Amino acid sequence: MLGLLVALLALGLAVFALLDVWYLVRLPCAVLRARLLQPRVRDLLAEQRFPGRVLPSDLDLLLHMNNARYLREADFARVAHLTRCGVLGALRELRAHTVLAASCARHRRSLRLLEPFEVEPPELPADLQHWISYNEASSQLLRMESGLSDVTKDQ
């Protein structure tokens, strides 16, 4: 019986070490936390912050957070943001998926074990802000001119 317990413990440790179990545990937790504990957000471009803490599995040989883990935390923040905005639910209904085309991380300082941190979005570039406001204004103008301003999308 003790041999079976040791074998199961060794198998569990091997699975935990070889597969990234923390990722498989933390991603659903981030979605549930965003869905149940945080308020809904209507604006997709609204600034949102995602708190976290450096775990032992995030450390590298120099005992600070591995650079790849920063992007993982950004992934958790992205999924939580999509959940709070309702985009993740809409994607599920459509059986669609999101694709992250590119990412960029700016490492400001080293993070140590159990140190709290926040993932925060970068500011939108001025040209992107201009493009968004231009498209909003022009699409509203086109809808008004065509008489579609009071017609819903389903009709």
Rank of each mutant, 00 (worst) to 15 (best):
L2V: 10
L4N: 05
L4G: 09
V6Y: 10
G12A: 13
V15G: 11
V15T: 10
F16E: 12
F16A: 06
L19H: 12
L19E: 13
D20F: 08
W22S: 05
Y23W: 14
L27N: 00
P28Q: 06
L32P: 00
A34V: 04
R35P: 00
L37R: 14
L37P: 01
Q38K: 05
R40P: 00
V41H: 01
V41T: 07
D43A: 06
L45A: 13
R49A: 06
R53E: 13
V54L: 03
L55M: 12
L55T: 12
P56W: 15
P56E: 08
S57A: 15
S57R: 10
D58H: 08
L59M: 06
L61G: 07
L63E: 07
H64P: 01
N66F: 04
L71Q: 12
E73K: 03
A74C: 13
D75N: 09
D75G: 06
F76S: 00
R78W: 04
H81S: 05
H81Q: 08
L82E: 01
T83G: 00
T83Q: 02
C85M: 02
G86D: 00
A90C: 12
R92I: 03
R92T: 02
R92K: 09
E93T: 10
A96E: 11
H97A: 13
V99F: 10
A101T: 11
A102G: 08
A105C: 12
R106T: 12
R106K: 13
H107P: 01
R109K: 11
E115P: 02
E115C: 05
P116L: 09
P116D: 09
F117R: 04
F117W: 06
F117I: 07
P122A: 14
P122R: 14
E123S: 08
L124V: 06
D127M: 07
Q129N: 03
H130Q: 07
W131R: 12
W131T: 10
W131Y: 13
W131L: 12
S133K: 10
S133I: 07
A137E: 14
S138Q: 14
Q140K: 07
L142Y: 14
M144C: 02
L148M: 06
L148H: 10
D150G: 02
T152G: 07
